[in-house]
Amino acid sequence: MSKRILCRCEDVTIEEFGKAYRDGFAEMEALKRFTGVGTGFCQGKGCLCESALELARLRGIDPSQVPLTNIRPPIEPLTFEELASLDLPPLVGEMEAAPRGDDPEVGP
């Protein structure tokens, strides 16, 4: 059957994205969590710009009003084995220099 796929990894069509918007998910961060757009294997490389443009169209706002959702590292697939191979001496030094345990925000 013919479909217009917005997000290939999570199989979200442009109609489904529009329905989620009409159901009240009006921000990219919410749409990302609800529809799965940008949360698949490719982490949004194939769909985040397209989705943000579609949201701007649906809301009738200028695209510049649609902020980029948070893009956390890694931006390439990594195995746990590779992560376990990481040696980061300079960063560990900085982390040890930071206050810990006695931060009132964090508590004991």
């Binding site: 479909k3 490389k45 194939g46």
Partner: peptide, 21 residues
């Protein structure tokens, strides 16, 4: 693809799209 079972292939050929896993 997981939900609609749509065929996927090497559409970016550069390791980004994951259609070729």
């Amino acid at each position: 693809s997981p939900k609609y079972g749509r065929p996927r292939g090497a559409s970016c050929a550069r390791g980004h799209c994951m259609g070729c896993l």
